Amino acid sequence: MIHVEGLTKYYGSHAAIRDLAFRIERGEVIGFLGLNGAGKSTTLKILGCVLLPTSGRVVIDGYDAVSHPHEVRQRIGFLPDTPPLYDEMEVGEFLAFVARLRGVPSREVSARVAEAEEKTGLREVDEVPISSLSHGYRQRVGVAQALVHRPALLILDEPSSGLDPRQIVEMRALIRGLKGAHTVLVSSHILSEISHTCDRLLVIKDGELVAQGTEEALGQRLGGGGGFIEVEVRGERERVLAALGGVGPVRVLGEADGVVTLRVDAPAELRPRVAQAVVGAGLELLRLDRGAERLESLFLRLTQGPEVTAS
């Protein structure tokens, strides 16, 4: 669906993005991550044919985004970080207007609007002026205008921005429901939502792509090949550390009432060895879990540490 090679964009002498290269297959949901100013929005705007690149190539659904922008725009739905809404219009009226702009035949407009409202939970506000909608509903209208013409590719820039916890869960379910029928590229600062909804991750830092792959693959690469083991042991801290030191690097996560919680940087298959080490030292093993590095931790390590690539 998307093939990017050597993508670069300069603003004057400043390179917002440099030499980006990645592929996105049909039907995937991809999370696009980076700190503020990393180049996410610039990249998404180029993919959405809003900006021209300085150099490089973008091919979407077989069409070059520079030489055939009209064909590309027909195949994408774009939600920028600020939804492009007309406050004076009612929800259904606005979506019908967008559908016509997108080239939907007149005889199909009503059905397409109903379909988009159904997917985004907007049926009950079809005749409500956009100006009177809550922030959460405005975000939904933004998603609806992006998919009303049934695009092959959806580009969503911060779709969960400013939503309350209930609305975030609803947006998560909405994005999940789009998988398969659409290819989705979503940028968000709410990393838990990326973790719950996306198949793979692209991580950008200072305008350069520093990692791409599944969350699990990136965690394994950064963790040395297999995550970690979390352990709760009743006993003296020094004895616990001595018992587990031979298994792998150990970090104390907490200590209270004679119970020490630790992280052992070792693959999950070494759990029996961890258990044997604890019991063999005469200590009481209370809990032994296979750990998985949270996306928040991965993100900070990728954007602040050395570069890494996973497939």
Rank of each mutant, 00 (worst) to 15 (best):
R287K: 11
P267W: 05
G37W: 10
R166E: 13
E117C: 15
L147P: 01
I168E: 08
S41K: 00
L174P: 06
F299W: 08
L154H: 01
A217S: 15
A211V: 11
L7Y: 12
D64T: 12
I204A: 04
P83I: 05
S134W: 11
Y137W: 14
A275I: 04
I190A: 09
R166D: 13
G305L: 06
E158P: 06
L122P: 06
G254D: 02
E230K: 11
F32W: 07
L153H: 00
A242C: 11
V308D: 04
Q167H: 12
D206G: 13
G121W: 05
V186M: 14
I168K: 10
H3M: 12
I155N: 03
V259K: 00
H3G: 10
K45D: 11
P267A: 05
G142P: 05
S55H: 10
I190Q: 13
I155Q: 00
L202D: 07
V252E: 00
K9N: 14
R287P: 00
A242I: 04
S13F: 04
V4Y: 09
R221D: 04
P165G: 07
D19A: 13
R176L: 15
F32T: 08
R234Y: 00
G34N: 09
A116N: 05
E170W: 10
Q212H: 13
L302Y: 03
S188D: 04
S13W: 10
P306Y: 00
L201T: 07
S187T: 13
I194G: 09
G280M: 07
E208Q: 14
L122C: 08
D257N: 10
L270D: 01
K40Y: 12
S67M: 08
T303A: 08
S55Q: 15
G258A: 05
L85E: 03
A310M: 05
P165E: 07
R18F: 12
V125M: 05
D206C: 13
E28A: 11
P249T: 03
G223A: 08
V72I: 08
D61C: 14
A99T: 04
R200K: 15
E90V: 10
S161I: 11
H135A: 07
A211D: 02
G213P: 09
E158S: 12
E108N: 06
V72C: 02
F32K: 11
Y63E: 03
V128Q: 09
R26Y: 03
G207C: 12
P151T: 10
H14S: 14
S188K: 11
K9F: 13
Q74K: 15
G258Q: 01
I30D: 08
I194N: 09
T42S: 13
S160H: 04
R107V: 14
P272G: 08
G136T: 06
L262F: 00
S55A: 14
Q304K: 14
A116T: 01
V125C: 00
S192A: 15
T54E: 03
L262W: 03
D157L: 08
H182P: 05
G248Q: 02
G56D: 06
V72H: 03
E93H: 11
D87L: 12
A281E: 02
E90I: 04
T197V: 15
Q74C: 10
L209D: 07
